[in-house]
């Protein structure tokens, strides 16, 4: 490489850094900074009226799994916390699986439309993003609540005599999350299916594969990057969902997000809230690492 070439390369590298400086600054101030504060808070003592008191303590972290017995101060396993964790994980996994089951045919449908009509379908998928999440969630509430649209119609049709109790159950939270996160599954799947060479389907049928085998052995392995991206985009925010379980799960069907919020509000236990936040971050990171590695290894074995 000549000197002039070298100079040009180093100049373009320098320019790239200059261009990304604003974004890096925002990340530093907006993400890394607060995260550090949360990490520090998780090792402090709770203040009486919220906030924290400066003093090292592991109570925040201990509080994730244990509570102090009110009478003798012994540590007992906090069943209520475990229920919340389990509900969060269960609902997030169910949401991910279900958005895939519904989202895959949808994405396939859009990707196989004519190039002219495809933008219209994609546009329809993005319409929900135009409205505030809270309002959309209340709209779902309106549909499924006891005197809501669904129950009214079912009762008018004579299909049921007493209204279905959906609202304020796990089912309600599940319905809400599938609705909210479905586009996040459809869009990356669409991108992957759009790149999929449809001629491979004929090659598969030609080589004696049934429709199911074509789906399992050809389509799914090839669109897997889209499936992985979609699953991450759905699973991660599902795990930390706040608005949906709050509005549709009532006060009782809490998920981790609501539980954390509780610590910073009524609970007045900021260190516990901070520790829970860090835990969520760690769990998500590990889950993603394992998932991505597993997905890639499977790829090599096919």
């Amino acid at each position: 490489m000549s000197q002039a070439e070298q100079a040009q390369v180093s100049r373009s590298v320098r320019n790239a850094w200059y261009l990304s400086t604003p974004a890096l600054l925002i990340l530093l101030v907006g993400a890394v900074g607060p995260l550090m504060i949360v990490l520090v808070y998780s090792f402090l003592l709770p203040g009486k009226y919220g906030n924290v008191e400066w003093g090292f303590s592991l109570d925040g972290w201990r509080g994730i799994l244990f509570t102090k017995d009110i009478f003798d101060d012994t540590l007992v396993l906090a069943d209520a916390h475990l229920t919340i964790f389990w509900r969060s994980i269960k609902l997030s996994l169910l949401t991910t699986v279900f958005t895939f089951l519904v989202g895959f045919p949808t994405a396939w449908f859009i990707a196989t439309r004519t190039p002219k009509s495809r933008p219209i379908w994609l546009f329809l998928i993005t319409i929900p993003f135009w409205t505030n999440l809270l309002i959309r969630t209340y709209a779902i509430n309106e549909v499924i609540r006891t005197e809501g649209l669904l129950n009214t119609i079912l009762m008018k049709l004579g299909l049921i005599t007493t209204p279905l109790q959906i609202i304020y159950t796990d089912v309600a939270v599940f319905i809400g999350m599938v609705y909210v996160y479905l586009p996040l599954m459809v869009l990356p799947l669409f991108a992957a299916i759009d790149r999929f060479d449809m001629r491979l389907l004929e090659a598969g049928y030609d080589l004696y594969a049934s429709r199911l085998q074509v789906l399992r052995r050809i389509i799914l392995p090839i669109v897997k990057p889209g499936l992985i991206a979609g699953s991450i985009l759905v699973f991660v925010p599902s795990l930390g969902a706040y608005v949906t379980p709050r509005v549709l799960g009532g006060g009782k069907q809490m998920m981790i997000g609501n539980f954390i919020e509780l610590q910073f509000g009524q609970g007045r236990n900021w260190p516990l809230g901070a520790a829970l936040s860090m835990l969520l971050l760690i769990v998500v990171t590990i889950a993603l690492l394992v998932y991505v590695r597993y997905a890639n290894r499977e790829d090599a074995n096919v």
């Binding site: 491979l200 598969g204 090839i222 790829d299």
Partner: peptide, 10 residues
């Protein structure tokens, strides 16, 4: 096939 249509993941 004219495009060969080989399976890219295999």
């Amino acid at each position: 096939f004219q495009s060969y249509a080989l399976f890219p993941h295999l």
